[in-house]
Design a binder for these strands. Structure first.
Lengths: 128, 128
DNA sequence: TGCCATAATTAGAATAATTCTAATTATTAA
DNA sequence: TTAATAATTAGAATTATTCTAATTATGGCA
């Protein structure tokens, strides 16, 4: 039986939505799945190609996989490495489309990432 | 004598503005510089930390370094891997700032990347 | 049921990008 | 000079990912 790819999506959604391949692997194993890391990468690759998952590259460490695939914005905390999803406004979407059109660029996807320090980390820094 | 970091910026600017560490290394060597890859990475790291260079991670291959450091948008071609810089409009900048503020996110930098096929690649695909 | 073709999974090797380490070399200040 | 510090280096180590070739599972059908 083919390893059910939906298990991976469930794991991601059940753990904050943004996991690396190894984190997914650990979760799968700890819930009794017998699966190899190569298979995790295989399935992730397939799901990304099918548009069922988003691959996020923060430039820090491994790629992370997002179960949410509609156009949205990522807030990446440089302290705790957390990724927060934020809706993308229609006006932002429109602006990006306009930029692409002006440059005769055949846009397939947008990646809007804001890097900085998340509210929790700002808070815990102050407390010190 | 400390290897002059400005040589690296010159190399980047003289070659389309978006090179990887190894590409920069090759250029440096071919113009007679005797330098190791470790030093290239050292200097790049320093320049990025000082805000003199931007590190771009397309998720494909090595990180690339951009000599332009003001807020701008990247068009990344998934065919030829070229990166094109586009000015970021004040309205886009404003929208991103607003998003961060709403989420109480202490934004340090923005990364707006549009992925797709550049005008040249669209053209050469048609010609086939 | 047993057999075959195909697809999925696997462990581990291979690769690529980057960082680390420890030694060497250069620079500076006294 | 000389001693202290900083920069550079080669190569090892690490990390993330992909590749390979072998194994295992699965479904169709005689």
């Amino acid at each position: 039986m083919a390893k059910d790819p939906s298990i991976i999506k469930k794991i991601i959604m059940g753990n904050g939505g943004h996991l690396s391949a190894v984190e997914i692997w650990d979760c799968a194993k700890s819930q009794g799945e017998s699966v190899s890391l190569a298979t995790i990468y295989n399935i992730l690759g397939r799901l990304v190609a099918q548009g069922e998952l988003l691959e996020i590259n923060t430039g820090e460490g491994a790629a992370r996989y997002d179960a949410r695939v509609d156009d949205h914005t990522h807030l990446v905390c440089t302290e705790c490495n957390a990724i927060q999803d934020v809706d993308m406004s229609k006006s932002l979407e429109g602006l990006l489309g306009k930029v692409a059109t002006q440059q005769k660029f055949n846009m397939h996807m947008t990646e809007v990432t804001l890097k900085g320090v998340c509210a929790q980390c700002v808070q815990s820094t102050k407390e010190k």
